[in-house]
Computed example of a mutant assay.
Amino acid sequence: MGGPAGEAVVTVDWQRYAEQMARLARDLVAQESVQATLDAVSAAAVELVEGCDAAGILTVSKGRAVTLAVCGDIVEESDRLQGEFGEGPCFDAARRVDGERLFRIADMTRPQPSWPRYSRAARDLGIGSMTGVLLYTDEEDFGALNLYSRRPGAFGEDIETAGWLLASHAAVALATARTVDQLENALETRHAIGEAMGILMERHQMSEDEAFGVLRRISQNHNLKLRDVAGRVRAASPERG
């Protein structure tokens, strides 16, 4: 099938892609942290999607572009410029400006009226075409998975579908990784609080309820997380000095 500016659009070998998706699902779930999962998603996009030269995950926090993961040397600069200009397809996708969960720019070498400053910068970076998919699960957005090619017309409708499948696998793996991280953090927090309570109980002859009450009051009065208060108590203990 012909693409813009005479470029041939890459199609997908769906049987091979399905096999790759199955392997990817196992690999993503096996990652040890949210960051490792994000990095694996970006690397998988470059490896699995034909025509993709670089990939990254961008989120927008309080109006600021934040690069979460990178695979390829043009991604960070692209994200930085979109944040600096406050415009760009990845920036809009992460903010869900138009309500769409997918974008595809067939030819970034041509002027893009929606992003005039970024499109000029993208040409200088050597970006030929782009596509991106919002990563989300349970109505919570993680950011946009953005794919870059150095040639125009690299991403056709087949690639959009491939991107959706990759993003779906990634979102499930991210949700799993976040759950594991949250459980581990909860266990670490419980351990820290328990140790701090033990120190107070021994040092000041307090009951368990009294020791917890002291930690909670300090937390509320000083607007600190209970875990941080516990950490300060532990750090101030002579036994830990």
Rank of each mutant, 00 (worst) to 15 (best):
L226W: 03
R190E: 15
E210G: 06
R216F: 01
T179K: 11
A192L: 10
G198V: 02
T176Q: 13
R217H: 01
G213N: 05
N223Q: 06
H169Q: 15
G194R: 07
A170T: 13
R190K: 12
R217Y: 00
A173E: 13
R217P: 00
H191N: 08
V180D: 07
M201I: 05
G194P: 06
A175P: 08
M197G: 03
A170C: 14
E210Y: 01
M197K: 10
R217L: 03
V214L: 06
H204V: 02
N221L: 06
T161A: 12
E202R: 09
H169E: 15
F212Q: 06
L166T: 12
G213V: 00
A196P: 03
R216H: 03
L200P: 06
A171F: 14
M206V: 02
D158Y: 07
M206S: 03
S168L: 14
T189Q: 12
H222T: 01
S168K: 13
N185K: 13
E157S: 13
Q205W: 04
R203N: 07
R216K: 06
N185T: 09
L200C: 04
R216A: 02
V180T: 06
L187R: 11
L166Y: 12
T189V: 05
A167Y: 15
N221I: 00
L183A: 10
H222E: 02
L224K: 02
